[in-house]
Amino acid sequence: MVSDLVPWAVTALGGVAYGLLLFVVADGLALIVGVMNVMNLAHGASYLAGAYLACWLADGTLTGLAVAVLAGIAAAAIAGAGLSVLLKPLAGHTEQAAVTLGIGFIASWAFTRLTGGNTLSPPRPAILDGHLSFAGHGYPVYDLTFIVLAIPLAAGMYLIVRRSMAGIRLRAAVDDPLMAAAQGLSVARIRTIALATGTMLAVTAGVLGAPVIGPGPGVDSHVLTLSLIVVILGGAGTNIRALLTSALLVGMVENIGVATVPALASFSLFLIVIAVLVVRGHRQAVSAA
């Protein structure tokens, strides 16, 4: 009986790793969309950029992986700052969505041209390239390591956004920019830092998550769609716990769905999204009545 449950446990553990990867990406998107109120549809392209960096710079060592992460952080800081300047004159979500969607398409096209449209798989660090056996079923050590790394990241983001002075200033700049400016806070600077940080999270997730979701055509759109779902289900705000819960839910549904009935995986996910949003809307309508 126990042996029959092991494959499901291994699949569920894969769902946790997948969900935590989505959490890191969605955390950056929530910061940009939910907190800074900027519609960034190029977020999936940021993940894709990080994943390609992992393929080009990682050499199967922890040092190579670290170099890819640092290169990704540097590139993301520049890209986020540039995005802030580009979007500064655009106040409406429609204009922001059109511009960032165009940036995402151009980036995806460029990566496809550079790689010939092939799906790549970066080498995992040799020390993490193995499997742990559970009753005859193997599970990648790298995925377990990612789980271990993502958990303190979730806790750290919660403390930064909800407990730190930087988080307080960020929320103040969004909630009442005029009052924040009157208190001596640079709203433009906070906006730039937030956009750069959100982009860094997506790129870093791409570097570390490339062995889980490898770079290739359509990956940026897939990651963007799932991240948007996580942010919508999580409430699109600074509630890190809600965001983490929704990311784990999406990861579980995706991973278990693909492992059991691949044709219905996306159907099941969107069915859950529809149900959650309808119930949430009904509750809000009742509360407002």
Score class of each variant (00 low, 15 high):
45 A>E: 02
155 A>I: 15
179 M>T: 14
232 I>M: 10
179 M>A: 15
59 D>I: 03
129 D>H: 04
219 V>E: 00
213 I>W: 11
5 L>F: 10
245 T>F: 15
126 A>V: 06
39 M>T: 04
149 L>I: 09
217 P>W: 05
228 L>T: 04
178 L>I: 09
141 V>E: 13
227 S>Q: 02
169 R>V: 13
171 R>V: 07
102 G>K: 08
149 L>T: 10
220 D>I: 01
41 L>K: 00
93 H>R: 08
176 D>Y: 12
24 V>G: 00
198 G>V: 04
80 G>T: 05
240 I>T: 15
39 M>W: 06
268 S>C: 12
163 R>H: 15
187 V>M: 12
252 M>C: 08
20 L>G: 02
169 R>W: 10
217 P>T: 11
52 Y>C: 03
257 G>R: 07
67 V>P: 02
229 I>H: 03
115 T>N: 15
181 A>N: 08
118 N>W: 14
111 F>I: 00
200 M>E: 03
104 G>T: 03
250 V>I: 11
248 L>M: 07
13 L>Y: 04
104 G>I: 08
2 V>F: 14
7 P>D: 06
41 L>F: 04
103 I>D: 03
157 M>K: 04
160 I>C: 08
216 G>V: 03
68 A>G: 07
102 G>P: 11
266 S>F: 09
228 L>V: 05
122 P>A: 08
125 P>M: 10
243 L>S: 07
208 L>Y: 01
267 F>R: 05
241 R>E: 15
53 L>S: 07
49 A>K: 01
253 V>A: 02
35 V>I: 12
242 A>L: 12
51 A>Y: 06
277 L>I: 08
282 H>R: 15
175 D>K: 12
137 H>G: 05
177 P>D: 07
222 H>T: 13
101 L>W: 10
30 A>F: 01
219 V>Y: 01
12 A>S: 11
277 L>R: 05
223 V>A: 02
264 L>K: 07
211 P>H: 04
48 L>P: 00
81 A>Y: 10
33 V>S: 10
142 Y>S: 08
176 D>R: 09
91 A>T: 14
173 A>I: 01
268 S>Y: 05
121 S>E: 10
190 I>V: 14
175 D>L: 15
76 A>D: 02
193 I>T: 14
197 T>Y: 09
288 A>K: 11
119 T>Y: 13
116 G>H: 01
73 I>T: 12
80 G>R: 04
226 L>K: 01
289 A>H: 15
165 M>T: 15
217 P>E: 13
191 R>W: 07
262 P>S: 07
32 I>S: 07
56 W>S: 11
197 T>N: 03
109 W>L: 14
114 L>T: 07
184 G>H: 06
209 G>I: 02
126 A>H: 05
62 L>A: 09
257 G>C: 04
158 Y>Q: 13
229 I>N: 01
172 A>H: 09
191 R>N: 14
77 A>R: 02
58 A>V: 08
220 D>S: 09
271 L>H: 06
211 P>R: 05
159 L>A: 15
6 V>Y: 05
256 I>H: 04
287 S>I: 11
167 G>H: 10
183 Q>R: 14
169 R>I: 12
255 N>D: 02
158 Y>R: 14
69 V>C: 12
90 L>Y: 12
20 L>D: 01
153 L>D: 05
67 V>D: 06
210 A>V: 05
